[in-house]
Design a protein around this nucleic acid. Structure first.
Lengths: 233, 233
DNA sequence: TCAAAAGTGTTGAGTTTACACCCATGC
DNA sequence: GCATGGGTGTAAACTCAACACTTTTGA
């Protein structure tokens, strides 16, 4: 490919903030920086984009290489490039991605690029390298607002889940109290959940039905103008 | 500044899609490309980011240089970097910005970078260079959805405007019919418009009150959790 | 006096909120 | 039989949708 004949010395990176939900708490994927000035600092998964690679390919490669995961939801979040000194290595802009991981997949196989990778509860995130704490903040705001108008909560739960898990997820992430009856009524009114024949009896008390989210049906309805929307008192 | 020691040959550009509203129609700012392979093609205002410049500074500079305008609303839209060949000059990613311009400011002083600049009604946009038609599409979707949950319509109107202008703007941009009475009731119920003592009698028929949008009050309410939201039948 | 746009209320339907008791299981 | 979480209905308040006539001006 012909090279652009301008003098520009800006590098392009991608970073992913991956949310996972386990033990009734929202977690963020962190990796340990293996090289460079911030070696051994905890940061978000990410790295430089290769010349022949799309941004989308780059972020998926980094997730694979640094944590061995394949996320269930991925969208571009924001491009951070207004702090010229955000990266000590020089001028780097970062295209940040917002990702969710199904909680049945919360295992890691860290190897290639990062010395280590781990899930950290959102309220226990240490001071990270670069501007990654700020990126997490932006991503968390996005998560909260999306939860109310897009059915992304299901991307954080196992394929089959309890109603109480869903309810807990909303309570926890939005930090609000929810009326159990109204919440259930509202969610069920969409007709997007399917009861399974299975029950969970892992907890004490009355066994609970397991539900599945019908994503195909949602996609179909969404094309026809349906909007998933949940409000709270 | 120390240069990053990786081999990457990707350039970073910013592009702005600026919407303006005049003569009851939504317009987009286009400029004529002055240099390069796409010379004389119409494109969005934009260009390469300079090394010592933030993205925000870059986009403002381009708007000033290419069209001599200062927009009333500006936010990052999306970063286009998934088509490796989107720019014939080589690998370029573009951080696109979404901008609105108050319709009293719809004059242009094109000079420095672009041979020409003009406002084109959205439904008469020609085939543009790069992937700019696609960027406009994404921006238009953003505009439509933001109109329903953020008071950005006012950024497209003069400081003092008629209720019918506002109504028309919503009808036109969203391509929906609106019940005048319900619309007025809803907007007034927010308590964010102030009547002025002035009347417009530029049209035939009964003179109409001029209104002002109280942005300070909106910002205050918004911080307290208020949400501007308009739905249509 | 006519044409053109501005201004204005009410009613029924639907949605949202608030709220408390019984059920099924394991120990 | 008791502790634990699961499951359920109703009434009042509010919001939304539908709908048409009167007012003011200029020509």
């Amino acid at each position: 490919m012909e090279s652009v004949k301008i003098n520009q010395n800006i590098k392009v990176a991608v970073d992913a903030i991956v949310f996972g939900y386990s033990n009734n708490a929202l977690h963020v994927l962190l990796v340990k920086q293996k090289f460079g000035a911030l070696k051994n600092n905890w940061v978000l998964a990410g790295g430089f984009v290769k010349d022949g690679e799309t941004l989308y390919e780059a972020i998926n490669r980094e997730l694979r290489e640094e944590a061995g995961i394949q996320v269930t939801y991925l969208e571009q979040l924001y491009t951070f490039g207004d702090d010229i000194h955000r990266d000590p290595r020089g001028r780097v802009i970062s295209v940040a991605y917002f990702a969710l991981l199904n909680s049945t997949e919360l295992k890691l196989s860290a190897d290639t690029d990062a010395k280590d990778a781990k899930w950290v509860p959102l309220d226990k995130i240490p001071k990270l390298g670069f501007d990654h704490n700020q990126i997490i903040q932006v991503a968390y705001e996005r998560l909260k607002s999306k939860l109310t108008y897009q059915p992304i909560g299901f991307d954080l739960l196992p394929k089959e889940f309890l109603f109480s898990d869903l309810e807990n997820l909303y309570c926890n992430i939005l930090q609000k109290q929810i009326d159990r009856r109204n919440f259930r009524k509202k969610i069920l009114s969409f007709g997007l959940l399917e009861e399974t024949e299975k029950f969970s009896s892992e907890k004490t008390g009355r066994p609970a039905k397991l539900f599945k989210f019908n994503k195909k049906k949602y996609n179909k309805l969404h094309k026809e103008g349906f909007n998933f929307e949940i409000k709270f008192a």
